[in-house]
């Protein structure tokens, strides 16, 4: 298990999805963990990702950081899981070419 910083985690998760683009399964798991015995009230979000072979993980500690991370994670999942294009132009191009293929 490799513990990464938020930015590197996003990059590695992106490549994990890319590697399993045609075949394979990717799991992303979130759980709440306590931050040591001295401060039981503090908690963090542990995020793990695996494709069954490689494992990566990341710890999100404060809610201020989690907002940025959440946006990055959501756009990443949008692209890889739903094929959401980053720009609207790209979506139009893709959808029109898809329609052409279907009709011919």
């Amino acid at each position: 298990m490799v513990r990464l910083g938020p930015d590197r985690f996003i990059k590695r998760l992106s490549s994990l999805y890319e590697e399993n683009k045609d075949q394979g399964t990717v799991w992303v798991t979130m759980k709440r963990v306590g931050e040591g015995k001295k401060q039981p009230k503090e908690s963090a979000c542990l995020i793990r990702a695996t494709d069954g072979r490689k494992k990566i993980s990341c710890l999100i500690t404060s809610s201020s950081k989690s907002v940025d991370f959440e946006q990055q994670l959501n756009s990443l999942m949008g692209v890889h899981l739903f094929g959401a294009a980053t720009s609207q132009q790209k979506t139009r191009k893709q959808s029109s070419s898809y329609k052409k293929k279907k009709t011919t």
Partner: peptide, 20 residues
Amino acid sequence: LEKLKTINAWFLANMSTLST
């Protein structure tokens, strides 16, 4: 996609806060 975004955001926000 919106459902996934909602649940991701909710779990991240709740799990990384200081209190329960």
